[in-house]
């Protein structure tokens, strides 16, 4: 395989609060390769967003603090760059799309201004007229109708889907090498989600950008991602290509996520939520962080005392899981998931 575009290595990010230190990201590592879409999936609070925010230096410090690790992008460690150098990369080589387009766009500036700003920030030679022309082109590219007039409108005059497409236009303005989309469709109506995904895929094709897609929506992962990283309690618990993750998961948490996914061939009543809640990131359980909710652990001492490393599975190349008993899942995912159902 070629060199990764982005390589996160042992990233550790903490937040200091009055109640204690929140271990938001704990030794997370993953790679993103050129042209691919990496899906990062997990419940809220699993550290999937904090990871990319740390990558971009967008963690508010204090209370946040990047304790360790490195983030290699274009041969440089982003964590060692100065704010000025990071500014060059943000919005330039790395474009970012956020969850809620109405709150992510500045309400008092026109959409056109905000797109032009992305252009002008990274190209000081660009004239205001050229920035406008290019912004209108970008609006056109993301299928905002009547882009010339829409340029001068404010975000509140846009529809929800149009706002998110404008965000995409902003993110792809400088032909980034990497697009990061943080829950890009979560805040949108189901009917609009498809359109926005379409535009996002088109943007990927046109810019040849690698993409990190952060979501809790496995359907979106199935549709968009080439490879998947599953996160839980600030850790990567399983990673592999999308086929493997969906058809032969080797981590009970991933399996739990699958079981909670509505499928056309299943009654809604048979949906299985994962029991319990994600742990407090201040006061984590010892051993495997998932064991209190795990159907494999059954009070096994090893689960409570020893944290499982992210290790290759017997399943296939590039497939890794952080579970002591991962190979038990190989015996038949279907059987086990049936077990889960009867257990309750």
């Amino acid at each position: 395989m070629s060199e990764p575009v982005l390589s996160v290595r042992d990233l550790v990010t903490e937040f200091k609060t009055a109640d204690g230190i929140v271990h938001a990201v704990d030794h997370v590592s993953y790679d993103v390769y050129p042209g691919e879409t990496l899906g990062v999936v997990g419940e809220s609070g699993s550290g999937k967003s904090v990871t990319v925010m740390s990558v971009l230096g967008l963690i508010p410090q204090p209370p946040g603090r990047i304790v360790g690790g490195e983030v290699i992008f274009g041969g440089r460690d982003l964590l060692k760059l100065s704010q000025q150098e990071l500014q060059q990369i943000r919005g330039g080589e790395i474009g970012m799309i956020f969850q809620d387009p109405i709150s992510s766009l500045n309400p008092v500036l026109t959409v056109g201004d905000q797109i032009s700003e992305a252009l002008l920030t990274h190209n000081s030679k660009l004239s205001a007229e050229d920035a406008r022309k290019r912004s209108v082109e970008l609006l056109h590219a993301v299928r905002v109708p009547n882009p010339d007039a829409r340029f001068d409108q404010y975000p509140h005059e846009y529809s929800g889907g149009m706002r998110q497409r404008a965000m995409i236009a902003m993110a792809m303005a400088n032909q980034p090498k990497l697009l990061i989309a943080d829950e890009p469709t979560t805040a949108l109506d189901v009917t609009i989600q498809a359109q926005v995904l379409d535009v996002l895929q088109q943007a990927q094709r046109e810019t040849h950008a690698a993409t990190i897609l952060i979501t809790h929506d496995l359907g979106l992962i199935a549709e968009m991602a080439d490879r998947v990283v599953v996160m839980y309690a600030g850790r990567v618990v399983e990673t592999g290509d999308v086929e493997t993750i969906f058809h032969a998961p080797r981590h009970p948490y991933t399996l739990g996520l699958m079981a909670s996914l509505p499928r056309l061939d299943m009654d809604l009543e048979r949906l299985q939520p994962i029991p319990g809640q994600p742990p407090s990131l201040i006061n984590l359980p010892p051993g495997c962080k998932f064991h209190p909710r795990c159907m494999l652990s059954h009070g096994r001492v090893r689960c409570r005392t020893e944290e499982p490393p992210l290790a290759p599975t017997a399943g296939g190349p590039g497939h890794r899981s952080a579970c002591h008993f991962k190979e038990e899942l190989a015996d038949g995912v279907a059987a086990l998931s049936a077990d889960v159902r009867t257990a309750s």
Binding site: Q272, P273, Q277, P292, H298, S344
Partner: peptide
């Protein structure tokens, strides 16, 4: 507060498996 444990009725305070680590699980 949100219900402390959602879903499965098999997980209760009496369950020795979870009671051990309630500290980590409980919502303040």
């Amino acid at each position: 507060a949100e219900p402390q444990l959602q879903g499965s009725p098999s997980v209760t305070d009496d369950d020795p498996n979870t009671a051990l680590y309630r500290e980590g699980l409980e919502v303040k």
